[in-house]
Amino acid sequence: MKRYDPALYAILALIFALSCAYVPLAGRGGGEMTIEVVRDGKTEFRAPLGDVPEMLEFRGPEGYNAISSVEGVRMVSADCPGGDCIRAGTIKNAGESIICLPHRLTVKLTKESASEMDAVSY
């Protein structure tokens, strides 16, 4: 009787390797950055950052916002009274957001990844 069948151990090793690989892979999506525009809790626009036009315009009951997505995302124009969203500047990394409170509009960058933060205290 042959005690050490190499084929058997190869198969067992493969199964072991696959099951180890499954754990970190599970729940991790692609690494593509997504831009999401939410008005009043409802997602109004969502697309991979690479696929969006250079200028995005949004009109809502409270007013108008224009977003540029050239080298990061920034609010270029808005008819809100304060203009805080324009002053917020450019966002580039996942988890960052620009908020136009008077228009109840949030622009955020997200990325599916295991090491993301759940929230930021500010």
């Binding site: 917020a88 500047g89 450019t90 966002i91 580039k92 990394n93 988890g95 960052e96 957001s97 620009i98 908020i99 955020k108 960058l109 930021v120 205290s121 500010y122």
Partner: peptide
């Protein structure tokens, strides 16, 4: 929040 970086950083 980092004081000098965009919201969320």
């Amino acid at each position: 929040q980092h004081p000098a970086k965009p919201r969320g950083a």
